[in-house]
Amino acid sequence: MIQAILIFNNHGKPRLSKFYQHCDEEQQQRVVRECFQAVSKRPDHVCNFLETSNLFKSNDSRLIYRHYATLFFVFAVDSSESELGILDLIQVFVETLDRQFENVCELDLIFHVDKVHHILDEIVMGGMVLETNMGEVLSHVEEQAKMLRSESSSFLQAMKGSKAASKVKSIGSRLGH
């Protein structure tokens, strides 16, 4: 299974971290640091797989990563995952982000952490591959967005409604006195 998914930039600043097995805060930061140290020094032509020990308790992790411009996408997986499969999954994830944000860049990830999480959730769930079909992923994300849009328009109406109601209430209380 996938143990963790991390995105950080060339300076090691985390842009997304998602852990699929419980780690406390300190451990999470340690994992981010160690992963950054492990991958940032590697030149571009070497292989995209890396073995680490003691990253998690289970003592069996591989890092599979891709480097895009300013960002590292790192997946920590156990031995039950196919390396090339995960490498492709990173590609799917990035291509999906690219479609969603129209030429994704680091800033998009920073200002829309929540959205990135929602997209990732449609691709990987509980450490397992959920969906690899980009069209399917995007349609789920779009469905959620539609829901949010319809809410925000009805939300304004609700606000108006409640203001009117409170006016009525205040009038009523005044009458009572």
Partner: peptide, 28 residues
């Protein structure tokens, strides 16, 4: 939290959002 700062409160408020009728709040 992502940047590594400790967050000691807000859990209750976040959990309250779970039962919100608004999808956006529930999602958050």
């Amino acid at each position: 939290f992502l940047l590594g700062h400790e967050v000691e409160f807000g859990h209750m408020e976040a959990v309250n959002l779970l039962s919100s009728l608004h999808y956006s709040e529930k999602q958050m």
